[in-house]
Every structure is written in structure tokens, then in C-alpha cells.
């Protein structure tokens, strides 16, 4: 019985979603929602989705957001990885930087927005910088933790086998820290999308967040929902992509 359920599972996941969409459609069509603003049925939202795609509005805004996320996330992750590796590997550096990182890490990325708006101004660099900060600290933190958690005896073994420090770092410590590092990537990939939307709502005139704010001012609930769907799909796919990458790189030995 349990085996039978397991075999069905991949296809099963879609069923609750279908039920949810059907309920949505019915409730909206029968006008069962309270409040003065209408709640568009799923089919209407899909029609709008098609139109926004066809006239290029969605694509244009989506690309703007995607580019910011990719640049900010990659730059922030690489910087976090490099600084985190240096801190995790060098005790002195860790001692020196750890207090600063501990103070800065808890500040939510959006907390920097007012400051950066004044320093950088409203331009492309602003959202990218926000995403950079939002990716940098968690990746740094997880990298440091990952590296410092590697059992010191592996390092001693490698040393007796004649490996230099740099060799030990690249062939033993980094691979063993990968699961931790990937946790950082995975969490932040989704977080980057959440943050970019918020930043675009507040300060940037283009992107999915900005499109949502425009829709709000025109009371276009269907467009807002289209944007939310895009956001949900992107968060999920980014997280899944890193999950896949992590499995690919570590499943063999974990």
C-alpha cells in the first residue's frame, strides 16, 4: 500500500493545485468574496497573463528584475564565498571580522534601502546593490560555518599525505563544506526575489515590483495576481535549481 502511494507521488502533487484553482474559479465566478473589489477568476488572470506576455510588458519587466537578481546574486555570492573562505580558513581573519559580520548580518537587506537611495541614487545600481547585500552575508556566514565545521582530523590526514595548505583547502575542506555553502545559496536565491520585488515597489520604476505598484494604482487585481504568480514560480525555481545542484554535487558521498 505504502509502495503504491510512493509510486503515485510524482503525479499526485498536481492534484491539490488543480483543486485549489478550481475552487478559486468557482468562488470568483459566484462572487462569494467579501469586499468592494472584485476577485478575478483564475481564467481571467490567465487571459491577462497571455496579453501581458503578448504585448511584451510582462517580459520587459520580468527581464529587468531577472537581470538585477542574477547580477546582484552572483556578485554577492562570489564575494561571500571568497571572504567566507578566507575567514573560515584563517583564524586571525575570522577573529578580526567576525564581530563586524555579526553586527551587519542581522540587518534586513531592505533596511539598507533609504541609505543606499541617498548614496547611490535611483538607478540600476541600487537594486543590484540591495541584492548583493542580501546574498553576501548569508553566503559568507554559511561558508564560514561550513569550513569551520570540517573535522580537523581530515586536515591532519591530508597533511600527513603531503598536501600543502592550499591543496587541503581546495581538495578537502571546500568539498566537505559544500553542503553548508549550498544551504546559503538555496536560501538566498529565493530571498533575492522577495527582496527585489520589495525594492522595486518602493524605489525603482521598472521590474515586476514596479508593475505591481502600477497595477495597484489602476486597481488591476488580475495584473497583481499575474505578478505574484511569476514571483512564486521564480522563487521556487531558483531554490529548486540550487537544490538540484547540491544533490548533483554531494549525493554520491553523503
Amino acid at each position: 500500500m505504502i509502495n503504491g502511494l510512493k509510486r503515485l507521488r510524482p503525479g499526485w502533487g498536481i492534484v491539490p493545485v488543480l483543486i485549489f484553482l478550481a475552487l478559486w474559479e468557482i468562488i470568483a465566478r459566484l462572487n462569494l468574496t467579501p469586499g468592494q473589489f472584485n476577485f478575478p477568476p483564475f481564467s481571467t488572470v490567465m487571459v491577462e497573463f497571455y496579453q501581458l506576455t503578448a504585448n511584451g510588458v510582462l517580459g520587459e519587466n520580468f527581464l529587468a528584475s531577472l537581470t538585477r537578481v542574477l547580477i546582484g546574486f552572483c556578485a554577492g555570492s562570489i564575494a561571500g564565498l571568497v571572504v567566507g573562505t578566507a575567514m573560515g580558513w584563517t583564524e586571525k581573519l575570522n577573529k578580526a571580522l567576525h564581530p563586524i559580520v555579526s553586527l551587519l548580518y542581522p540587518i534586513p537587506a531592505l533596511g539598507w534601502l533609504p541609505l543606499l537611495m541617498l548614496w547611490i541614487g535611483i538607478n540600476e545600481l541600487l537594486p543590484i546593490t540591495i541584492i548583493f547585500i542580501c546574498s553576501f552575508f548569508p553566503v559568507l556566514y554559511n561558508t564560514v560555518t561550513g569550513i569551520r565545521n570540517v573535522d580537523k582530523d581530515y586536515i591532519r590526514v591530508a597533511r600527513t599525505l603531503g598536501a600543502s595548505d592550499i591543496k587541503i583547502l581546495t581538495t578537502v575542506v571546500m568539498p566537505l563544506a559544500l553542503p553548508n555553502i549550498f544551504t546559503g545559496f538555496r536560501l538566498e536565491a529565493g530571498m533575492a526575489w522577495r527582496v527585489i520585488i520589495a525594492a522595486e515597489m518602493v524605489a525603482i520604476p521598472t521590474g515586476i515590483g514596479a508593475l505591481m505598484m502600477k497595477a495597484e494604482s489602476l486597481i488591476r487585481i488580475d495584473i497583481i495576481i499575474v505578478c505574484l504568480i511569476v514571483l512564486a514560480v521564480m522563487c521556487l525555481s531558483f531554490e529548486k535549481f540550487f537544490e538540484f545542484l547540491e544533490t548533483k554535487m554531494t549525493a554520491k558521498w553523503r
Partner: peptide, 27 residues
């Protein structure tokens, strides 16, 4: 340690978990 030419078998072995048997030996 890396220059003493000593082979050391640790109590808990510490085989590198991310390397297969051949790669462990070849390390």
C-alpha cells in the same frame, strides 16, 4: 608533517567521504 615521509593510520580512519576508494588512495 607533509615532509616527514610518515604514513599515519588514524584511529577513526578519516577516509575522505567525498572521494571514492581510488581517489582516497591516490590523494
Amino acid at each position: 608533517a607533509s615532509k616527514r615521509g610518515v604514513g599515519y593510520l588514524f584511529q577513526d580512519l578519516f577516509l575522505f567521504p567525498h572521494l571514492d576508494v581510488s581517489a582516497n588512495i591516490a590523494y
